[in-house]
Design a protein around this nucleic acid. Structure first.
Lengths: 260, 260
DNA sequence: GCCTAGGTCCCGTGA
DNA sequence: TCACGGGGCCTAGGC
């Protein structure tokens, strides 16, 4: 049985077939279309060649000729996707009742329509997220400083969760904010909120540490103002061995070239 | 001349053809694949049916059966996309020298390979972005308060740009932060940074106003703590007429149904 | 090139 | 269900 089928017919016939296949197969349309979205914003997309994907969960993605981001899209959870014909034009439209969002795509030319009977039970396996990094710092406190002793991960405050909390040898509280990417001014301010909170609540000296992959001069200046310590960590250099270890069995499968 | 062509052949022949079409046409592969990404994170994607898009700008998008977001992707600007064959497996791989990021996709089965000779010079026309909303408030200051007089848009401070600045009838400075969506705690804190800055620098009384589509109880509580004013604005109800007016000529084109 | 901020952000998690 | 925060965020705009 073929996994992909290329449909033929007039706009009306296509609309009929697509309505039947909707939610059963992934639908891909290559064609010339315009699109209009009305919801959180209004957008109008003039005519051009585009690639439309409609998945079985009724998420819809309209891709242009450039970039990773679609031109228009609709998350799953909207109402049924509607396929219809206006003369020789194939119309694909969605309406999300809750937010009153509408998306209408008008294909004045359809070059190819493909249905894809795809099966996929796999889930993406990721290593190196921010929480992995905080775990790593908990196990390698010397990266923060020679006398840093971690005590708590994900400590809750009214202002949010503190990534990592600990003490130095004098018993001073140290609060660590962990970022995977380069630090932003907002990161520095977020840390300031936490430090202020603890100084108010615990009435003791609190030190702030911001861990990130890089620091701009502007952020460094902010950190000096607040008397916080920046710590640069090159995650990509730290993690490869551990990640490879963790994923080694799946990687074996990968390179052994045996499907599933 | 046909806009879409479905390629045939062994993995080796496909790899050869795709190498030639790369950057000239959009390439779409329906197949069973695994994928591994190593860069800012590491990810491993076990085997499953997927849809791969490679655009002419060498952006690459691998879609699974659900959701708007791709499973794996690569922005344009990486090195050349490489197509090769390992036995009967079609391998698509990328390498971004600057960040040393690699993505390798192994198709053990290819159901269909389509090239799309797409032409698109259109640009997406958007109305209702945050800056449009700030402009609107500048022209309709009464929404902020009966005695609000706007003075400046996009006022720069060391802590970032203030969306909207003005004064009340007593000459007090009013700082307005504008959000299109529901307000988050971070929005409240961002406003606090601006207000603190002005109080420090100008040594005058400063009032803070947060405009958003909605406020959670937690955010309202924060605003009370800081003595800031929340203003709820239903952008979707405010904008339709203006947006339609602005876009009326393009909308005429749209509904007149004449391609391009 | 880096830095900054917005997004129809999307998406997972937890209450 | 909603609120909150991360993301390989992506992308546009400034400098």
């Amino acid at each position: 049985m073929k996994r992909t089928i290329n449909l033929k017919g007039t706009a009306k016939e296509l609309a009929q077939q697509l309505s039947e296949e909707s939610c059963k197969k992934t639908i891909v349309i290559f064609g010339f279309c315009k699109a209009i979205f009305d919801g959180r914003i209004k957008s109008f997309l003039p005519g051009g060649d585009r690639l439309l994907i409609v998945k079985k969960d009724e998420s819809l993605i309209l891709h242009g000729s450039k970039g990773v981001k679609p031109l228009n899209w609709q998350k799953s959870g909207a109402g049924k996707i509607n396929y219809s014909a206006k003369g020789s034009t194939l119309v694909v439209s969605t309406f999300r009742p809750k937010t009153k969002e509408t998306l209408e795509i008008l294909f004045t030319r359809v070059y190819q329509t493909t249905t894809f009977d795809d099966h996929d039970s796999a889930t993406l396996n990721i290593f190196g997220s921010e929480s992995d990094l905080s775990d790593y710092l908990f196990d390698h406190p010397e990266i923060i400083g020679p006398d840093f002793q971690p005590t708590t991960r994900e400590y809750e405050t009214p202002f949010g969760f503190i990534d990592l909390r600990g003490v130095d040898k004098h018993g001073n509280i140290i609060i660590v904010e962990v970022k995977k990417q380069s630090a932003t001014p907002a990161d520095a301010h977020q840390l300031k909120r936490y430090v202020d909170y603890f100084q108010d609540v615990e009435k003791v000296s609190v030190r702030g540490v911001l861990v990130a992959a890089g620091f701009s001069e502007k952020v460094l200046s902010l950190l000096r103002t607040y008397d916080f310590k920046p710590v640069v960590v090159f995650w990509q250099e730290i993690f490869p061995s551990k990640a490879t270890l963790n994923m080694s069995h799946t990687l074996d499968d990968f390179y052994n070239n045996n499907p599933k």
